[in-house]
């Protein structure tokens, strides 16, 4: 069977969930070969194997952390040349998309970004994309070279399928352009203890209606009762009430959870662009005309300061 390269997104060897989704999707096309760059390949390998990686190509070098994007492209290209895969799959993070695009150009292949599903087709993998703020669903193919496709988080449920997952060290020669952009310093994001926004099964977001940084605890408390991640509209972020890293929408994170709860959010097109593919959508808004109600499975017209705390209590009571 043909091999499919899967670029591993991880934090020091802790494999992030979107990678497991990619391994699951890759198996529809061929045998997944994971590409692990940076530290922790040996600890990652067990997880990668569990989800179907027949092999793990690993490389570690200071360049990956010290310079932006290009060293990783050099390494992924080395893996591509070693394997001659049927496709290359990369998680759809900002960096993932940049890596994928540069690799595609180098190897003379087309690139598709932000797929939400992937199937094998007669003439190569078929990618489903959700476009124009999820108003349209498209099916696309790469018609030249080896398909390079980035896939959004929450596009598939990870399924275990144990395989060998043998680690092989790769040797990578970095091109002279790889050190062009220096990462002078890096401040890791502090963990909130809540699930990662893009990976969470449930997201509770607050908007302008939350009316102040101090009030966001109302949103956080509801999120915690559900084990959810916290999101925010741009209006709330621009007002300085919540960090930009939590913004949902066109210029923030794109989320596709099982359940999305919007509180005090009107539902502008740019916000919808980042959450409209959520499976179940719930809104609490005091304006019954708010466009968010066009999207919801369940909507409560009411004051979020009344509804959210009561809902939180209700959930806690039911969970015992």
């Amino acid at each position: 069977m043909a091999e499919v390269l899967v670029y591993v997104d991880h934090v020091d060897g802790a494999v992030r969930k979107p990678t497991l989704e990619l391994l699951t999707l890759a198996r529809r096309i061929g045998d997944p070969v994971a590409v692990h760059l940076g530290a922790g390949a040996d600890s990652a390998a067990a997880t990668l194997a569990e989800y179907g990686a027949v092999k793990v190509l690993a490389a570690d070098a200071p360049e990956f952390a010290d310079y932006l994007v290009v060293p990783k492209v050099d390494a992924l290209q080395a893996a591509y040349e070693a394997v001659s895969p049927a496709a290359v799959l990369v998680p759809s993070s900002a960096e993932g998309k940049e890596i994928a695009a540069r690799l595609a150009l180098r190897i003379g292949s087309g690139v598709i970004t932000d797929a939400v599903d992937l199937e094998a087709g007669d003439s190569g993998p078929v990618a489903t994309q959700s476009v124009f703020a999820a108003a349209f669903t498209t099916k696309s193919r790469v018609t030249k070279g080896t398909p390079v496709i980035t896939v959004k988080p929450n596009s598939a449920a990870p399924e275990a399928a144990p395989a060998a997952g043998t680690v092989e060290q790769m040797s990578v020669t970095f091109g002279e352009k790889s050190t062009g952009t220096k990462v002078v310093s890096r401040t890791p994001r502090e963990s909130t203890g809540r699930p990662e926004l893009t990976e969470a099964a449930i997201v509770v977001s607050g908007g302008r209606g939350v009316n102040g940084a101090e009030n966001f605890s109302v949103v956080e408390n509801l999120a915690d009762s559900l084990g959810a991640a916290v999101g925010a509209s741009r209006a709330a972020v621009d007002a300085g009430w919540y960090p930009h890293t939590h913004q949902v929408g066109q210029t923030g994170k794109s989320v596709s959870p099982q359940l999305y709860i919007a509180a005090g959010i009107s539902g502008a097109i740019q916000h919808r662009a980042g959450m409209q593919t959520s499976k179940t959508i719930v809104a609490v808004n005091k304006d019954e005309e708010a466009p968010i109600f066009d999207l919801v499975d369940y909507g409560v017209v009411g004051d979020l300061f009344e509804v959210l705390p009561k809902l939180t209590e209700e959930i806690k009571a039911r969970k015992g």
Binding site: I281, V282, V284, E288, F293, L295, V296, D297, Y298, G299, V300, V301, G302, D303, E306, V307, L308, K310, L311, E313, E314
Partner: peptide, 14 residues
Amino acid sequence: GTIVKDEGEGAKQL
């Protein structure tokens, strides 16, 4: 979807 007006019971209904 279902849309309800909160008249004290909104949270319970949700």
